[in-house]
Design a binder for these strands. Sequence first.
DNA 1: ACTTTTTGGTTCATAATATAAACTTATTTA
DNA 2: TAAATAAGTTTATATTATGAACCAAAAAGT
Lengths: 93, 93
Amino acid sequence: MLKELDPLLHSQLRLGVMSLLMGAESAEFTFLKEKTNATAGNLSVQLDKLSEAGYITIEKTFRGKKPLTRCRITRKGIKAFEEYVQALKGYIK
Amino acid sequence: MLKELDPLLHSQLRLGVMSLLMGAESAEFTFLKEKTNATAGNLSVQLDKLSEAGYITIEKTFRGKKPLTRCRITRKGIKAFEEYVQALKGYIK
DNA sequence: ACTTTTTGGTTCATAATATAAACTTATTTA
DNA sequence: TAAATAAGTTTATATTATGAACCAAAAAGT
């Protein structure tokens, strides 16, 4: 039987972010923005949602005088991602 | 680079329907409803969208005196599904 | 025989979600 | 010193998903 797909992950942009974070120790806002082709506003909102859910951490610092936002996937996020992939496989054969 | 995910397929219910139709010659409304656990209203709407897009055909007849709605995936639908799966693989590694 | 429930849906109003435009604050660059 | 750029956030809107309410016919109760 088809499993539920975690709605937090079943979104192109959030899934893209999580996918990128799965493959890196951490990633900067600007990097994620470039790789996903998202607008800053949209990315900002979606990162907040992932953070709210405890799937990522967001660390805001400065590089010199400029703001620097760094994201990292959490253990919970990794687990959710892996479960999502398993569930998805039931759909794509 | 991450590819676009066809928004018509990137929806739990529509993807579920397409997945079921990929594995069968045809399927009845009531069968799809059971397998996907959708409400009739939601399923009806999503089937229309897939049909509008040319991804499935919907044939309305009768079994005895009761309405019978039968769905089939089209060549276009199969292609779209396969492309979606390819694009998705870029996200889930 | 009629009235209640079930079957097989559709329509529509609302809830949830995604998205980008407009804004902010600070920093280079001209 | 005015104008453009960087790095985001907030907010208003557009899009999408979802189910409640509805309909017509058939089957089941009484």
